[in-house]
Amino acid sequence: MSTDVQTDTALFELALRMGDNTLILGQQVSAWCGHAPILEEDIALANTALDLIGQTKLWLALAGEIEGKGRSADDLAFLRDARAFRNVLLVEQPNGDFGQTLMRQYLFDAWHLPMLTALKNSIETRVADIAEKSAKEAAYHLERSEDLIIRLGDGSDESHTRMQNALDALWPFAGELTQPDAIDDELAQRGLAPDLADIKTRHEERMRAALKEATLQVPEAAIRKGGKQGMHSEGLGYLLSDMQWLQRAYPGAEW
């Protein structure tokens, strides 16, 4: 029985939130493998997905360790139901066209880098170590996705229209990344994670500057949220059934 295990709930949630974001985004981006518009983009997307899945393994392994109930990173990835996932709604939005995939990546990367950079100062060294490792990769992702949204936004009529459509569809989901709840407040107070208000400022400044350069109009929209608390959109269920079916059908299957 594991009733005597005292899980640090806030810390557990932090590791799940970080790991579920990279897991779901990594799973989505990997679907482009073999389908991207040109070979170089195909490779770039696959490599990005690979980094994200690698980071997921670190975060979810830590989550399992913190929880103390013997669950591995794989158990957490493949054997939880949608309601137990803590990723933001942004990352579960459909791939759509290439523009939508890129815009989703950009809105995420622009948050991911400052978040990881700040997490390097976490008083929990296991969190700080993963953040240090991941931040370097996130910097690469951001550099690329920002370049591309500017080039495509400020590109042809067709590419501009597609990027604007992508922004209109995805902007409402960007705010959830920096909207604190009681867990975020506790994490910040204990020095485990940064104050999300600071991250929000950096996230917004970076996004608005790049989107302006991309000649894109930032829409007025209310924040769509709930993912961090486990309230997901319908799409996550389909995504999970695709991702988890093998472990569900053949429990314990290994390569």
Binding site: E40, E41, I43, A44, N47, T48, L50, D51, E143, R144
Partner: peptide
């Protein structure tokens, strides 16, 4: 630079 990502994560084309 052709692409920031190459045949492996550590390489660019």
């Amino acid at each position: 630079e052709v692409s920031r990502f190459g045949s492996t994560p550590c390489k660019a084309s």
